[in-house]
Amino acid sequence: MKYRRLGKTNVNVSVVGLGTWQYGGEWGMDFTQLEVDQILHQAKTEGINLIDTAECYGDHLSERFIGDFFSRDNREDWIVATKFGHHFHGNFERTRHWSADEVLTQLDASLKSLKTDYIDVYQAHSCSNDEFQNDELWTMLDKQKQAGKIKHLAISLKDNDDPFQTEKASEVGADAIQVVYNRLDRAPEEAIYPAAIQQDLGVLARVPLASGYLSGKYKPGATFESNDVRSKHDQNQTERVLNMVEEIARHEVPEGVNMASWALAWCLKHEAVTTVIPGCKSPEQVIANARAADLELVANDHPQSR
């Protein structure tokens, strides 16, 4: 595994992290604690130290799985990133909660679920620009940093082509951003990444496998069960994407290289990107994802490391 500094912090994260939306039950599978434990154990074996989760992956369900694992592992070995701003009511059903008091309640619920007394990276979860401009919220969060409940603040961007929140990140005390970025969606390169580089923000690239389409597992004509979020995607668009993936596999992925590993390494070659946070459903997928760090596309240190 390789590691990069998360923006201007003193935190070194593995270039491949672990996304955990799937534990909330919206990706076609309901997980058991044993299955989660096996995935997290394999991640640790591979040198992965970053877990990305959220308050609304289930009603703190993903966080509870992770917290239960921590009760049998060393919490200090992990960098935990979770999020605030939403409440889960059922699969694909959320309400938004952005007042300072509501977020403080969410923070305490996340700490309880994760069985920890601090969160390494606490992220505003896909907030609108209006929700973002809330001095009372950021003041409250700064007080929680001073109290030790939060180590670092970050912004998980709602849009991957609007640089407003990235440009304002340092003003609200954020050290990192999270954004959708993959071989099929390069929008952040235009304005978001330059703003992140200018402020020395860490960048967590989410959906680096384009919702699994860049894993190489799915061919044109693939369909998904109703409890899988991909069943909500426009089917015509899904078909176009899968045809594009076949072309990429044919012309860009080196022979003998796992497509998922290549797709993650492709993201990591951009100088702004600190880490990728793919989801996975098995220890075998963890191993394949971790292999991305071995590819020549991936530098060992963040280009801005000092």
Rank of each mutant, 00 (worst) to 15 (best):
W78V: 11
A109T: 08
D68R: 14
R206K: 13
T95V: 06
R230S: 10
Q38I: 01
I177K: 05
W27L: 07
M244E: 14
K115L: 13
L61A: 11
Y193K: 02
N182K: 02
N74E: 15
E76M: 09
N74D: 15
L264K: 09
Q133P: 00
A54I: 01
V179T: 14
T105C: 10
P208T: 03
A293H: 03
F31D: 07
A154M: 04
D228L: 02
T20M: 11
T32E: 12
R64K: 14
G25M: 05
V229I: 12
S226L: 12
I66E: 04
L201A: 03
F69S: 07
Q133C: 13
G25L: 07
K112C: 09
E225S: 13
A260W: 04
M140T: 14
V13R: 00
T139C: 06
A154I: 00
Q22G: 03
P220L: 06
F92M: 08
Q237S: 12
I277L: 12
D294V: 02
A100S: 14
D108E: 15
N227S: 13
Y57I: 11
N300R: 09
D175R: 02
K219F: 07
A100Y: 04
E225Q: 10
E102I: 00
G216E: 04
H86D: 13
S126F: 09
P283G: 05
S128A: 05
Q146K: 13
Y181L: 11
T223I: 06
D68Q: 15
G24L: 04
F224K: 06
M259N: 04
E55H: 07
V179F: 02
Q106R: 03
D228F: 01
G221R: 05
V241F: 05
L6Q: 08
L184M: 14
E190G: 00
N12G: 01
E46L: 06
S282K: 04
R75P: 11
H41S: 15
V103E: 07
V121Q: 06
W138Y: 11
R94T: 09
S170Q: 12
A100K: 06
K2D: 03
D161T: 07
S215G: 08
E247P: 00
V229Y: 10
S62E: 04
A290G: 12
K145M: 12
D77T: 07
E93M: 13
L114E: 07
K232G: 02
